[in-house]
């Protein structure tokens, strides 16, 4: 009888101690936000385009992190981003719904701009400058090509242009040999099998 009481007391005491320690640890080592969501956010292309159905890259990252969204909704990120997120989350890769378009950049036809500032408010990365009743213009280096400025424009003076190919950004293509192409094919087959 005595030994039974002793055992219960000992185990109970240890459990109590562990509980207190855990309670203190959660206070001391508290992490703001969700670290997984932050990691996912760093993988996303940050176009803030909303094509995933969420208002920006961070909300989508949060949704993926808590499991309420699939990993394959980021269209501009394409296959590579989807794969990286799936790796991080430890889930099966899924095909991205739409093929990523070529990188685009917005261009305002300034003659037609009426200076309504609606596009400036719509731009998620503050890449449009201008003032009321003055021409607006897009800072091409900052534009993510998200298309969000097209819809609010009352006079439809914004065009999406294909980003010009610059000498500084050019890089060598894959060698034009049969085996080089086989490598690419094999890689995608591996991915599908996984």
């Amino acid at each position: 009888m005595n030994s039974l009481v002793f055992a219960v007391l000992a185990l109970g005491g240890m459990a109590l101690l562990a509980g207190v320690a855990l309670a203190i640890a959660t206070r001391v080592f508290h992490v703001e936000g969700n670290p997984v969501a932050e990691q996912i956010d760093h993988l996303l292309p940050q176009t803030q385009c909303g094509q995933c159905g969420y208002p920006g890259c961070t909300p989508y990252a949060n949704a993926v992190a808590d499991g309420s969204a699939d990993v394959n909704h980021c269209v501009p990120g394409g296959e590579r981003t989807m794969r990286a997120i799936a790796d991080l989350m430890g889930v099966e890769p899924k095909a991205v719904e739409e093929a990523a378009a070529e990188p685009m950049v917005a261009f305002i036809r300034e003659d037609e701009c009426i200076g309504c500032t609606l596009c400036i408010k719509a731009c998620p990365v503050d890449a449009i400058i201008g003032a009321p009743k003055h021409y607006h213009t897009v800072i091409a280096d900052h534009c993510t090509g998200c298309n969000l400025c097209l819809e609010p424009c009352p006079v439809d003076c914004i065009d999406m242009l294909i980003k010009p190919e610059l000498l500084e950004h050019w890089s060598w293509p894959l060698p034009d040999t049969e085996r080089a192409r086989t490598g690419l094919k094999r890689r995608s087959q591996h991915a599908q099998a996984a």
């Binding site: 760093h42 996303l44 292309p45 940050q46 990365v125 890449a127 890089s171 293509p173």
Partner: peptide
């Protein structure tokens, strides 16, 4: 080709990081 792809990847990451900061500031 490999060097070019790595440079491109790095450039994309830097651009994404800059966009994220701009978006956060906004």
């Amino acid at each position: 080709y490999g060097k070019g792809q790595l440079a491109q990847l790095r450039q994309e990451r830097a651009f994404a990081e800059a966009s994220r900061q701009r978006s956060e500031q906004r």
